[in-house]
């Protein structure tokens, strides 16, 4: 009899205790969420809502150069994409430009990082100097290279070529894509260098010493010990670099203008809409494609990256 009574009180007090714990946990959850809420709302306002508008526009035939009202056309814009040669060309340029710029800046950045990752007098000064290209505004960088480096009459590169008796070349016109890639690599190598340098300096010194005692050469140590450890950093550089470089606009505008050989998707989208094309519905559908492609690439990249990081911890 008495046991039964005790049992019941125990259960009821246990339930109220569980409720209390749940309530406290909920409160703790809100304590953590609340401070981030303003930033979250702001982000939704400036990114997600415009995105939804773009999605809506991409389903219309909205253009500014005719007085016709905006009409809903469904997936018509998307259906026309595969036959749109200009879109296909721009997409191909985007791929080439991003891949080349990321790859070369990664290689140059890694080489610079390896050189910087040793103690010498003036190391900090040299590092700051090497970072400066990354700090230059894209438009300024574009103008600098266009007028002072590539120009056939005044450019430094052509002056150099002339020294060896070769004819001047108007680089930006003859090799538009390569010209843009060179400037992108110049600007983005410091970024890659910083990421790789972080990886190099995070290395356990005694592991490198052990490899030296084990008889490995400097190059052998880099290839067999350092490089495998750098992989997550190279992946991070690739991911971040790709996300930024796929959106390049300024350099193209300044250096080569609307030349077809170096017209990537963002540039083409701008051209078809605010840049005079005025076909906002169509350009919106391009944008959606770019967003989807970027998300897919970023997701694959992030997954590879997080697998690697997990693998190492």
């Amino acid at each position: 009899m008495s046991t039964a009574v005790t049992d019941r009180t125990d259960t009821s007090s246990a339930t109220s205790r569980a409720d209390e714990v749940k309530r406290l946990e909920r409160r703790e959850g809100w304590k953590r969420r609340l401070p981030i809420l303003p930033a979250l709302i702001f982000t939704i306002l400036v990114t997600q809502i415009p995105f939804l508008f773009t999605l809506f526009y991409s389903l219309t035939n909205w253009r500014l150069d005719t007085p016709d009202p905006r009409e809903f056309v469904g997936l018509e814009n998307y259906g026309a994409l595969p036959d749109d040669k200009f879109f296909r060309d721009a997409a191909w340029v985007s791929v080439q430009m991003t891949v080349m710029a990321v790859l070369f800046s990664l290689i140059v950045g890694t080489l610079l990082a390896v050189l910087l990752d040793r103690k010498f007098f003036g190391q900090g000064f040299v590092r700051t100097l090497l970072i400066t290209p990354f700090l230059v505004m894209p438009v300024v960088a574009g103008f600098m290279w266009k007028t002072q480096m590539f120009n056939s009459t005044f450019g430094v590169i052509n002056w150099f070529i002339n020294l060896f008796g070769f004819e001047s070349i108007e680089f930006a016109t003859r090799y538009p894509l390569a010209s843009v890639v060179v400037v992108l690599v110049w600007q983005w190598s410091p970024f890659m260098m910083l990421i790789v340098l972080a990886g190099l300096q995070g290395q356990d010194q005694s592991v490198l010493e052990a490899a030296r005692v084990d008889g490995a050469t400097s190059f052998g140590i880099f290839r067999q010990i350092t490089f495998p450890q750098l992989r997550p950093f190279l992946e991070l550089g690739t991911l971040l670099g790709a996300i930024y470089l796929i959106q390049v606009y300024d350099h193209i505008e300044v250096i080569v203008g609307g030349q077809p050989g170096a017209k990537n998707l963002p540039f083409y989208i701008a051209q078809r809409s605010i840049g005079g094309g005025n076909r906002f519905g169509l350009a919106s559908s391009y944008s959606i494609i770019v967003v989807i492609a970027s998300i897919i690439i970023a997701n694959i990249g992030l997954r590879v990256l997080s697998n690697l990081l997990e693998d190492d911890s």
Binding site: D204, S206, V207, E209, A210, A211, Q224, P228, Q229, D312
Partner: peptide, 13 residues
């Protein structure tokens, strides 16, 4: 041959 305090094993191997 040397054995280090933190072993200094090659992490990727």
């Amino acid at each position: 041959a040397m054995v280090f305090q933190n072993y200094a094993l090659y992490p990727s191997m």
